[in-house]
């Protein structure tokens, strides 16, 4: 399996993927028209034919034999430029009176656009059949190799929005206690509209004044900054790379935002450049050896590739790769690669 930039020809596969993603993965619209727009934006980003701040880099996880797309992931160069980027900032209000000995700290949600301009670890979706063999890890972490290589194209600060808590019936307590009062709409409907690209319209309907957390239902209070159970692994992966919750949450479901400086991401910091030796003798990739794997990227921009190799392939400042691997990485004579341990 390897990672490559998305291409024009991927439209149909992408559309299938979106249909599979269901409620909660709001960044994948299931309308073909929107998908096409998203795709051409990605293609233009790799062509560098649009300004840096408008670029969204979409990557595909490809099965080499079938050339099938098993998953996608994205990096957004700068959020909140075309549309307005909203979060609630989870802040505090302190009320204090010496006269009657009361000192009370109240969590307060402030509607904010503070994260405007940050880069974002965006969409990630992996087809269910491929949720094995380190594919999720490769798909998600391959982006750090791109960031490491092209830091200047991104903001210093990078964020990821995590899907918030909702129950088995798709009900979000946070939405039910807050957003719903302003829309009279179920969470799944609002989420659907969001996926269609209406997020900013919905955001415009959200309450603009700060919200005192104790005025929300206990279930809603408990879901502030809490991720969906299915998102726990993704959160753990981001945390292992250095991402931390930053007190910003999603205005709809209360899911947390996590952030880190690009230069402090574990994979960015620890990755190194290696000379490539091509050899039939190179070790085969053992996907069962979780901690013995490397992310290897070809350092190219418009034909960016990443795959997994074994750590035993490293020898000083060289790496030995099979002809098949060099092929998948589109390496030419004398090219170098960037590599880092897949896991911290």
């Amino acid at each position: 399996m390897y990672i490559r930039p998305i291409q024009k020809e991927d439209l149909d596969s992408l559309y299938q993927l979106a249909k599979n993603s269901g409620v909660g993965v709001t960044s994948l619209p299931d309308s073909k028209q929107k998908m096409e727009a998203k795709l051409s934006q990605a293609v233009a980003s790799f062509n560098k034919s649009i300004p840096e701040s408008e670029r969204i880099y979409l990557f595909a996880l490809v099965e080499p034999a079938s050339q099938k797309i098993a998953g996608i992931c994205a990096l957004e160069a700068s959020i909140g430029h075309e549309d307005i980027w909203y979060n609630y900032h989870v802040g505090k209000t302190v009320h204090s009176s010496r006269e009657i000995s009361v000192h009370k700290i109240t969590e307060t949600l402030y509607l904010s656009n503070d994260l405007t301009g940050c880069s974002e670890i965006a969409t990630l979706f992996l087809m269910p059949d491929y949720r094995k063999d380190q594919n999720g890890q490769l798909l998600s972490r391959s982006r750090y190799m791109f960031l490491a290589e092209f830091q200047e194209l991104f903001n210093e600060q990078i964020i990821a929005e995590m899907r918030g808590y909702s129950d088995d019936n798709g009900r979000s307590p946070f939405w039910d206690s807050l957003g719903k009062h302003f829309f009279h709409m179920e969470f799944s409907d609002a989420d659907y509209l969001t996926g269609l690209g209406n997020k900013v319209f919905i955001a415009e309907l959200m309450p603009k004044f700060p919200i005192y957390v104790p005025m929300l239902s206990p279930a809603a209070q408990a879901s502030i900054g809490k991720v969906h159970p299915q998102t726990e692994p993704a959160l753990a992966m981001l945390k292992s790379e250095g991402f931390e919750p930053n007190n910003y949450i999603d205005i709809f479901d209360g899911g947390p935002t996590v952030s880190v400086k690009v230069k402090n991401i574990r994979a960015v910091r620890e990755s190194e450049i290696y000379n490539v030796t091509r050899s039939e003798e190179a070790p085969a990739t053992d996907l069962t050896d979780k901690y013995g794997l490397l992310l290897v990227s070809n350092r190219k921009f418009d034909d960016f590739r990443v795959l997994l190799a074994n750590k035993s392939a490293l020898n000083g400042n060289s790496i030995v790769l099979t002809p098949e691997q060099t092929e998948q990485l589109q390496l030419n004579e004398g090219d170098t690669v960037r590599a880092v341990s897949l896991r911290p």
Binding site: T93, H95, S96, S97, E99, I100, V102, K104, T106, T108, S177, L178, H181, F182, P207, F209, P210, I211, Y212, M215, L216
Partner: peptide, 25 residues
């Protein structure tokens, strides 16, 4: 009781300053 007994300073110190959305009550 405090309202009748104490100065009203505590009122301005403690009362929430941000608007309150009625549907949240």
């Amino acid at each position: 009781y405090y309202c009748s007994m104490k100065s009203k300073t505590f009122m301005s110190e403690l009362i929430p300053q941000h608007p309150v959305y009625v549907p949240l009550l």
